[in-house]
Write a protein that binds this DNA or RNA. Sequence first.
DNA 1: TAAATTTGCTAACGGATGTTAGGAAACGTA
DNA 2: TACGTTTCCTAACATCCGTTAGCAAATTTA
Lengths: 191, 191
Amino acid sequence: MQKLTRKEQIERTATALFKSKGFAATSMRDLATALGIEAASIYSHIKSKEEILQRVCFRMADEFFEAIDVAEDKRKTASNRLRAAVAAHVQVLTNNTEASAVFLHEWRHLSEPLHGEFLALRDKYEARFRGIIRSGIQNGEFSVPDEKFAALTVLSALNWIHTWYKPEGKMTPLEIANSLSEMLLNGLTSK
Amino acid sequence: MQKLTRKEQIERTATALFKSKGFAATSMRDLATALGIEAASIYSHIKSKEEILQRVCFRMADEFFEAIDVAEDKRKTASNRLRAAVAAHVQVLTNNTEASAVFLHEWRHLSEPLHGEFLALRDKYEARFRGIIRSGIQNGEFSVPDEKFAALTVLSALNWIHTWYKPEGKMTPLEIANSLSEMLLNGLTSK
DNA sequence: TAAATTTGCTAACGGATGTTAGGAAACGTA
DNA sequence: TACGTTTCCTAACATCCGTTAGCAAATTTA
């Protein structure tokens, strides 16, 4: 257990509140109470409420990109690249369930230009999945009518995990990733 | 185009705002401005801000149940029951994109006991999908390790639609439903 | 021990929030 | 035309909001 700066403690507590109540419904006084201090004291460490949201959203974006950068190997088959991307994505999600929920749902409370920058990053990330699926279609591994539709469906199947995943649950992140890859690649039907 | 009561107009406008800005970030004065009246005037038609949220959430719950009740036919194969349930779900989602977004994301701003009642309904609905998958596993049609996990993955793949679906887009709701069923039942891999 | 930094406080600001009270036009119906 | 209902208004309430100013204790660093 590493030592956290006060600013990191604030971010962490805020992230938990943002996940459970939402950004807009979490007041600085709620956050202060959760930290055991006064609301005004928070401003010795951060500039604004939005700064917290910004840091969480963009840090998670970084994490997702780093994970997929490590996982993706263009020499592998499209199926194996998708398996690796799914595993990487699930690892990040399960390692940071609260920050992931904020990343997935609270980014819209960012004001411009952050809002636009965030959306651009998200598009770029989705494009990575589209690229994998496109190459699978081109070499005949995959058969799907619409590459973008398939990519969004894959990601949406992954992005529900944070709502139910508990570290103490019966499935490990790796098992979850394997089950999802299996289901996305081969479907429910018995072969 | 049927004639709407003022209360229905208020609900409809509020639903659009709740989807785009979120329940907590939408003020009664925002809603009033969108309607072209004063905030206080709204209270001639509704009791509270939460009443609007409640009505939207529970009406959509009704719609989802009605749709799956009509679609499900226990004499069909599990595959075809799943196809029908997916098509029903997609129809409701695409017919009410804004109310669906509220149903999926804003229900957590309901206070007790509504919050609990809503969750119970949602569990009951998910159980319908679990039931279909369970019967498919039992008769050998499906092969998946965890019935609950599979059901949640199916629903999560469906529940992203409202974020991108536009009635004027190139895919019809039926095409979307067919693509999704195909992908969920048979996966991405070519046969 | 002295200086610098971190952490927190009280008090208060200007504005936004959901909602109520009480009244007045406008409208449909008898 | 009279009556009940629908619709909307102004004014105001109590409370909550994010944030700032100014200051003091505590902790870390030199």
